[in-house]
């Protein structure tokens, strides 16, 4: 009986599935979070069921083709055109199997979507085409730094279109929608790095919208956070300014390579005389830049719309100075 052999195979596959459930196997990447092994166990169970049914269907098909191949002078054998018992059986068994998968899949899903009470909270902002992670102390970074073995809750929103936040190693994904907050959580199991992707198509740079999860050793995260919150003091002003340029939203409208965008490019802007809306002109120096950051509508460069929001109260004097130093270096 081929069926019996296939049952054996199913059993072996399940053993194999259990063995590799949290490893880097043919299909799944290495598991990096506490939720991942649970997902992998369902994945491998479904895989085993699928392989079994696939072999059953293809095996029977091959058998029939070989055995009942058309031969001259041989008519088809008489056989019934329906068989209620058989048809009920092959309806009932798949229903039972899919019900198991359904219940299992939903229970694990519930665990994955219910964060523990004492989670550490990080705000995630998606924008074309990068991720920004904001920490409770005001630090903003382009990579997600988290402590190992502690539940982390991400509160995510988008500034423009829908993005998809995906960490394959954590088996975690959620759409990031403008105008609402999505919440996910995870608990990383060991120190190391993991890849973050955007999975919801969002335009030209969709596939470049990458970031890393950096899981810190115990104690390492707090140290990183303190340093990161202090970067203005640790870095030269121009370098700190560049970081601010990236994480505070300047990059969305002001290019560095001369490309046109919502606002004027920073390339070669320093010391240039800009024509203003209404005919006047202005020299781009420290005072003009400072004014434009705090009162963007005061002097708008000709050819651009007055759409920049004010950064009054959002950037400190020290940060504005760092940005000015950075702008001087963009030639």
């Amino acid at each position: 009986m081929p069926g019996l052999n296939l049952l054996h195979l199913l059993y072996l596959l399940q053993l194999g599935a259990a063995a590799i459930a949290d490893g880097d196997d043919f299909f799944m990447p290495a598991a990096g979070s506490t939720s991942a092994p649970g997902v992998d166990r369902i994945f491998h169970f479904i895989l085993a069921v699928s392989v079994f049914f696939f072999l059953l269907i293809v095996g029977l098909m091959a058998l029939f083709v070989a055995k009942y191949r058309r031969r001259p002078g041989v008519a088809p054998l008489p056989s019934p055109t329906h068989n209620t018992a058989l048809e009920v059986t092959w309806t009932a068994i798949p229903i039972a199997i899919v019900l198991v998968i359904f219940v299992w899949g939903f229970r694990v899903f519930l665990d994955m979507s219910t964060p523990p009470a004492n989670s550490y909270e990080i705000i995630v902002t998606g924008q074309k085409w990068k991720w920004l992670f904001s920490y409770p102390n005001g630090t903003v970074d382009e990579n997600l730094h988290v402590p190992v073995d502690r539940p982390v809750r991400l509160v995510m929103t988008s500034e423009d279109v829908i993005h998809g936040f995906f960490i394959p190693d954590f088996r975690l994904k959620h759409d990031v929608v403008p105008g609402r907050y999505s919440k996910v959580w995870f608990r990383a199991v060991k120190a190391g790095e993991h890849q973050i992707y955007c999975t919801q198509y969002c335009g030209t740079g969709h596939s470049e919208m990458l970031a890393k999860v950096v899981v810190h050793e115990p104690g390492g995260f707090e140290k990183w956070l303190a340093d990161a919150g202090n970067f203005l003091k640790k870095m030269p002003p121009a370098q700190a300014g560049e970081k601010l340029y990236r994480i505070r939203g300047c990059a969305q409208c002001h290019s560095l390579d001369g490309a046109g965008s919502t606002g004027p490019t920073f390339k070669g802007v320093w010391g240039r005389k800009e024509a203003l809306k209404g005919g006047a002109s202005v020299l781009v120096d420290e005072n003009y830049v400072r004014e434009s950051i705090l009162e963007p509508q005061a002097k708008v460069v000709a050819g651009f719309e007055p759409v920049m929001p004010t950064y009054k109260g959002r950037l400190t004097d020290q940060e504005i100075t760092a940005l000015i130093e950075f702008m001087k270096t963009v030639k």
């Binding site: 994945f43 479904i46 696939f54 899919v98 998968i101 359904f102 899903f109 994955m112 088996r171 994904k173």
Partner: peptide, 21 residues
């Protein structure tokens, strides 16, 4: 057969989260 069976992976909520998109 393969198309249908791989649908089982996508129908299971927990696995779908990983495989979606």
């Amino acid at each position: 057969g393969i198309g249908g069976l791989t649908g089982l992976f996508l129908g299971a909520l927990a696995v779908n989260v990983h495989l979606h998109d």
